[in-house]
Design a protein around this nucleic acid. Structure first.
Lengths: 248, 248
DNA sequence: AATTGACTCTCACGTTACGTGATGCTTTAT
DNA sequence: ATAAAGCATCACGTAACGTGAGAGTCAATT
């Protein structure tokens, strides 16, 4: 039961171009391709497309969606349960917006008072509220890349690890008793920032947030402090200072 | 009670860059600017920002939002009522998606059967479902540009109208008893297509849809048939043929 | 078998809505 | 006066497709 692009597109209500795009970026690869190059989508492809569209509806960028569904720990049953939960949360947020409209209508009729803050109740676009939970379930690719290597590697594998990364961590561990703002510490942090940006894109804000995550999340703290007791806290401070200083 | 960009951004949960962008495109212009160039947003600006964010939440592109709120017939009270209605509809759609997830969960447990079509119930991204109603309320800028000129102009104004547009319509009126597929008709339609694309961007699909709108909406039919009885239907057919042919 | 229209492919430029960093001026609190 | 926070403009970059071009493929009809 293979379907070609138009049939899928019409069934689902998306464009053929979207399906092309998803194939190009490796998000949804059709199970088959004809000799003439036609894409053939299977039932399983459709199932996966549903998952993709769920995550998309919840505001996830495609790259992130790809990371999630390609994650070894991704489980469709679990995803469906999480989707349900997230959709309920989204409905809750929508209810708040409706309540805000109702209050605004009353306000405009002079029936109630309303602060500027209240007028935006239910509007919070500063971050994707579902991202934290998705990360807990399926990890964070960039973070996991950096730390999976630390946590999952045998001693032999760790030795085979990038010398640069190892050198950076070792140097930082040696510096952890000094001030996180010292020139030496900041130079080493700069190396770490550059290294991370070779693996993926890190803004200064993301870098700073990552430092905080090293302390907040026990699995990260444990891995990092393996290089030296208290290194995670040192990194958090040094990375925050680095990001703030570099932003000026 | 003027607020600068950061205060507004923090209050609302959007970025300063977004406010800059909205100012640049003329969507939300601060009521005041200091001598040093700082933007100062008034209560009224905040009120309008709320409207903007409502429409944005409903999936409207910024250009369209701008068209709507700058429309002479735009009324805030009316907008709030419409927002409420649209948010309720959106919630309804969300309910359908939640039901779909529930069914998918049951399906994955083997409790029920489910068609591929059913798996995408509630997912319809093929068009913005709220756009038709917004258009009814506040018109369609491109369409209104073309037809406001036709309907609202006095005789003297019509004579002052672009000669090109007038010539096109007159030629099309003369051709309306011929086949919409004839070379002459198609050449005149090509002129009309080019002319419209000087005023704004029209894809072939949009062009074809516009032709349909000429027949579906009485105010358009009336204006167009003023050039010649039955011209609106002729245009619909000729424009559809043109779009389909040009697409090959 | 030929034809035609629908479908499909890749290519590639364009659009939309910002994110991000750089540079330099302005404001505010100490 | 100073330092930090805030603000401006500039401009390149990103994400997610939309759109049209040109050419090959498929399926139904003649």
């Amino acid at each position: 039961m293979a379907m070609r692009v138009k049939e899928v597109a019409d069934l689902v209500g998306i464009s053929v171009r979207t399906l092309h795009h998803y194939d190009e970026i490796g998000l949804l690869t059709p199970d088959e391709t004809t000799e003439s190059g036609y894409r053939l989508y299977s039932d399983n492809n459709l199932q996966m497309l549903q998952q993709i569209l769920f995550f998309k509806e919840l505001g996830f960028p495609l790259k992130k969606i790809k990371d999630i569904i390609k994650s070894p720990s991704f489980d469709q049953q679990e995803a469906l349960e999480l989707h349900r939960k997230m959709l309920l949360e989204k409905r809750h947020r929508l209810n708040k917006m409706i309540a805000t409209v109702d209050k605004t209508i009353q306000h405009s009729k002079g029936e109630i008072q309303m602060t500027s803050k209240e007028k935006f109740e239910g509007f919070d676009f500063s971050h994707n509220p579902y991202e934290q939970e998705a990360r807990q379930r399926w990890g964070d690719d960039a973070v996991d890349n950096a730390n999976t290597k630390l946590g999952n590697m045998s001693k032999a594998e760790q030795e085979a690890m990038s010398e640069e990364m190892s050198a950076i961590y070792t140097k930082l561990a040696a510096l952890r008793h000094e001030s996180p703002a010292s020139e030496e510490s900041q130079a080493a942090i700069n190396d770490w920032y550059d290294f991370l940006n070779k693996m993926g894109h890190y803004s200064l804000d993301a870098f700073k947030g990552l430092g905080q995550l090293y302390v907040d999340d026990k699995r990260f703290t444990k891995n990092i402090d393996g290089f030296g007791e208290g290194l995670a806290e040192f990194l958090r401070d040094a990375m925050a200072i680095y990001a703030d200083k570099k932003r000026k």
